[in-house]
Amino acid sequence: MASSLLRGYVDGKHMVLLALSGKSASGKDAVARGVQGAFPELRWAALTFGEAIKNEGRRVVAAIAAERDKAAAVDAIVADLGVSGDEAAAIVDLLWTSVRAGELTTDLRHPLVRPALQRWGQWRVRADAGYWLERAAQRLAGLQHAAHSVVLTDMRMPWEADWARREGFLLVRLDVPEAIRRRRVTSRDGAMLTPDVERDATETALDDYAGFDLRLDNSGDVEPVLAAIGSALVERWPRSSRMDTSHS
C-alpha cells in the first residue's frame, strides 16, 4: 500500500499538494479519496476552484429568495457581491421563477445552476482575469497555514494548471477512453454524456497541456494509479525534507 512509503516520516506537520485533472467521469473524486486513504497520516483538505463560485451562487439565490421583487434582489446582489447592475439583473431574470417557486434553493440542485454559474464565473473573469485564482490562493494559504495536505480536483483550464504548478502542486492527468466515460456517466447520473458537454472548453482545454507531471490511464483498476501517484508524491517530498507552511 502506498501509505507504507511515508510510514515513520509524516508527523502531521508535513504536507503535500496534489492536483487532479480529467474529463467528466475520469474518476478524479475516486482517485482523490484513494490517495487520501493511502496516506492517512496526512491531514487532508479539499480545494476546488468551483467552491468560491458556488459560494457566491448561494448568496445570489439567498438574495432572490429574501427580497420582495426583482429590483430589490438586483440591488441586494450588487451591494453584496459588487457586480454590475446589468449582470445582477441578468442572473435574477434567469433564476427568479425557479427560486421563488422553491425549486432552486441554496443547495444548488437544479438544471439552471450549471449555466448560471458558468455565466457568473465568466463575468468575474471578464472584469478581473485573476478573480477565481485569487480566491483559490486565499483558501490554499489558509490550509497551508494549518498544515493541511491539499488535493485539488477541478483543474480544468490552462491558467488554473499554471497556477497549481507555480504553487508547487504535483499535477496528474487521468485519461479514460470516451466509451468508458460515457458508460460511467450513464451509470452515475442516469443520463448520456451530451456532445455540448464534451465540446465545452472545461472538458477540452487541458487535452494537450504539456505541464502534467503524470498522465495515467484510469480506465480500469485504480490501484496502479494510486501506486504511481504515491510514488510521485514521495519522490517530490522525500523523507529527508521537512515541509513548512509557506507556499512551495
Rank of each mutant, 00 (worst) to 15 (best):
L233W: 13
P158C: 08
A141V: 05
E160F: 03
A210C: 08
F212T: 13
W132H: 02
K28R: 13
A45I: 07
M192H: 08
H145S: 10
V197S: 12
R242Y: 13
P238E: 01
F49R: 01
A136H: 03
Y131L: 02
A2F: 10
H148C: 08
S231E: 15
T186V: 14
V225C: 01
P158D: 06
A141M: 04
V234N: 07
R135Y: 04
V222Q: 15
E103W: 09
A73I: 06
I77R: 04
S84Y: 00
R173M: 11
A45K: 06
E198K: 03
E160T: 04
G85R: 09
V185T: 11
E134V: 11
A73E: 06
L112S: 09
L193K: 05
D189M: 15
D154G: 09
L47T: 07
L171S: 03
A137N: 08
G57D: 04
A46P: 12
A52F: 03
L171K: 00
H14Y: 13
R7F: 10
A65H: 12
R199S: 14
L108K: 05
S187L: 14
D80A: 15
A101N: 14
D221Y: 08
L170P: 06
V16R: 08
H14N: 15
P111G: 15
Q144M: 13
R215M: 06
S248R: 12
N55H: 13
Q118R: 11
V197N: 05
G27I: 07
E103G: 00
A161R: 00
D29V: 12
G82M: 01
R126Y: 06
K54N: 04
V74Q: 02
M15I: 08
L226W: 08
A71E: 11
K54P: 04
S3C: 12
D196I: 01
R239S: 05
V99T: 09
R182F: 01
P177L: 08
A65T: 09
I180H: 04
V151I: 15
R199W: 07
A38S: 12
V99M: 10
W120M: 14
I64Y: 00
W159I: 06
V99E: 07
D213W: 04
A201T: 13
L193P: 06
D93R: 01
G102C: 11
G230T: 09
S24V: 10
A232Y: 11
F39E: 00
D175F: 05
D11C: 13
R242N: 14
A191G: 08
A191K: 12
E87G: 01
D93C: 02
R100Q: 15
H148M: 03
Q118G: 12
L170D: 05
R188H: 14
R182H: 08
D93G: 03
D107T: 13
S231Q: 15
V61Y: 00
G102M: 07
G130A: 05
S240Q: 08
G22E: 07
V176S: 09
L170E: 04
G130F: 02
A147L: 10
W132F: 02
L5K: 08
G22D: 12
R165P: 00
V234C: 13
S231D: 14
W123A: 10
L214P: 05
H247M: 12
P115I: 02
F169R: 03
R236K: 10
S24L: 14
L81D: 00
S84R: 00
S241F: 05
M1G: 13
H148D: 01
A76E: 15
R33Q: 15
L112R: 11
